[in-house]
Amino acid sequence: MSSADEGSAATASRVGADLRAARERLEWSLPAIAAQLRIRLPFLEAIEDGRIRDLPGNAYAVGFVRTYAQALGLDPDEVARRFRTEAADINRKTELAFPAPVPERGVPAGAVVLLGVVLAVGAYVGWYHASGNDRPASEPVQPVPPRLMALAEAPAPPPALPTHVAAAVETPAPAPAPSVSPSSAAAAVPAPGIVITPAPAAPPASPLAASPSGVGPGALPAPDGTRIVLRARADAWLQVRDRQGSVLLNRVMRNGETWPVPTKGQLLLTTGNAGGTEVLVDGIVTASLGNDGAVRRDLPLDPDLIRDGKLALPLASGQAGAKPLPAAKQP
């Protein structure tokens, strides 16, 4: 019981006391009034004593007070107004709380939705991890070999003769003179990255990707010990076969395409465009095979023979170094 409640009860009893005084002036007994007004005696006593809590409800309490006041000949509106101002509890609106049906399922809908979202996210994360184990997160990029790093950092040499290009691959400084050292030759041949292209500034890794996929399966993995590389300076039909007649290469190579010759011994080269075909031995361009458009057949692909210039025509050998580029322009 707070003091406010007691205060309101005390003041409400003043209206009750006034009603009681009015009733006693008329010399009426409470039971007689209760019988006349049909209001139960305990309620009338509660009104006179100011016990609002014992009355059935706000609306009824005010109604009883009005009826009682009217029966006593008092102004019901005035008495009810005083009753209202004195009893603070009465002024509160009747709380209306409708009985809500108990939800059919115990789990509230919000929790169900939340649980569903959590489950879905968990399932996705689990699936992502499970399926991610099979494949590498990313294709590892092989680091650039240190000896090529220096080349990549060096200023790009001007478009030069193919002989210069070949040399530039091996040493940063342009070395026109073909330097044949066993160590450099051995290092240059096995790696596919050494495959030489006419574009000197191209990164070492690109030729493989840039070269058309038409290269035969045998051509891609350069077997160890490959010393001869065929390169097309112009579009040229090339055929490489061994003595038994099985063909290793038989197609038109585009300008700039290369084909490392496997070390299989006793291979024969036939070219439809001798001027557009270069043979590199240990990375060094050898003498031209012939004039543009000339057909050379069954040339033995022997490194020593090639290096010695045995394959070159006596006529063509003199021109090889002089004008390779103009020849390349002709179809």
Partner: peptide, 13 residues
Amino acid sequence: LRDATGLPVVVAE
């Protein structure tokens, strides 16, 4: 109504 039903009858404000 009070006399007819024997119940307390009040008029709402």
